[in-house]
Design a protein around this nucleic acid. Structure first.
Lengths: 217, 217
DNA sequence: CCTAAATGTGTGAGCGTTCACTCACGGCGG
DNA sequence: CCGCCGTGAGTGAACGCTCACACATTTAGG
């Protein structure tokens, strides 16, 4: 709990314009960086632009971050472990499979809507940062854990083999993340929350795929 | 049909090493570029590296491509429209919903396995190139078209509204693409084809989500 | 309580490096 | 002879990052 963007999830829909006197300098730099990263890509965004959008000089960025890369990576893994925690909590707070699924879907949607730029940044640049680390503090492992438990408790009828758990995790996350991507690409209109019930239903059906065919929900 | 990487899908598992005398110079450049793009990212890959891996001088790259970006973009949209065609064909060749789904899943898996680097490049860098164009020659529109027809023919019980079609398209593609991503990240072991039946089953269930609950397949 | 040192924050010109791209030259097939 | 392909040193521009300086706030000592 040190550099973990404590100031990022604040003030929804603020600090949009240049030289907004809102929030700390570090927070404004993070906010400006995320917006630019999402619009133009990380590599195409220069430190000069980030500083300009945050209303400070370029050198100031290096008072708060060791490098542009540390800034981006920090933001990414902040979301990464935040999502992991959200999923874990939503799963632990519910006993029935239906409640677990709707809880996780709801939590992810709310988080995405609450700070869409940040969520979109994580969504679009996963491939850039994910190969760098492989610890257990990540959303997919959290989902796998929930599925593993659900199988063990008989809530999902499937074999508890690792390969099966991983595949079911991918297939369960698929509809959610693909829907988020479609929103990011302008194919669907947001917010994510608008699709909560459909997504819950869809994930439910995917996870019951290994049950006996035709079994009612 | 001009710069469309006519020479890319050839020779599976060839031209891996440096200065492989295989294929045309243009094809070797494309192959080397894709490999590097996938390994290090597009921006982090230099034209010198591409040329070196292809076994030619840097200037040669500019005999065949206007720019590094044109090379990357060309490869991306080649896959993009190729996937669209594959999906359209797999849908047109089958009448029942089950056959359509398994046909599309099978076609995507085969294409991915046939040239994994190329497919992975498309998968990982969609966000970079997709916002640049919005024509109808893309995989998602092809899937939407299949779903729209299936609804119209009564094969899927859902309202034919555009918003519904788009959402179902996202949820149907989700399991497939997320599984591909998990393979790309090393969470699942390939090939894609190994998951054909599970994916077919999962997509089938997602698409029946709007039918009356508990209806057998 | 005053002062001085230390620490934290902001500045922007400048540095060194890297990279996409060019171009003059050379060989080769038609 | 002309067009095509390949070459690699060279170029201009852009970028990440540094640093000497300035100002504010906090800390320490007599």
């Amino acid at each position: 709990m040190e550099h973990q963007l404590k100031e990022l999830p604040h003030d929804p829909a603020a600090v949009r314009g240049i030289t907004a006197a809102n929030g700390s300098t570090k927070a404004r730099l993070e906010r400006a960086a995320i917006q630019l990263f999402v619009q133009k890509g990380v590599d195409a965004t220069t430190t000069r632009e980030i500083a300009f959008e945050a209303g400070v000089a370029e050198g100031t960025l290096y008072r708060h971050f060791k490098s542009k890369d540390e800034l981006a990576e920090g933001a990414f893994f902040f979301v990464h472990s935040h999502l992991a925690a959200i999923i874990q909590k939503a799963g632990a707070n519910n006993s029935s499979l239906s409640d677990q699924i709707s809880g996780v879907v709801s939590a992810i949607c709310d988080f995405a809507d609450d700070d869409w730029d940040l969520f979109r940044f994580h969504l679009l640049f996963t491939h850039h940062y994910l190969p760098r680390r492989h610890d257990d503090d990540n959303p997919v492992t959290a989902v796998e854990q929930l599925i593993r438990m659900a199988i063990k408790d008989g809530l999902i009828l499937a074999s508890p083999e690792e390969e099966t758990v991983r595949l079911m995790s991918a297939m369960a996350l698929g509809p959610i993340l693909q829907t988020a991507l479609h929103i990011a690409y302008g194919r669907l209109i947001g917010p994510m929350s608008a699709y909560k019930s459909s997504l819950t239903d869809g994930v439910h059906r995917v996870l019951s795929a290994h049950q006996s065919q035709g079994a009612p929900l």
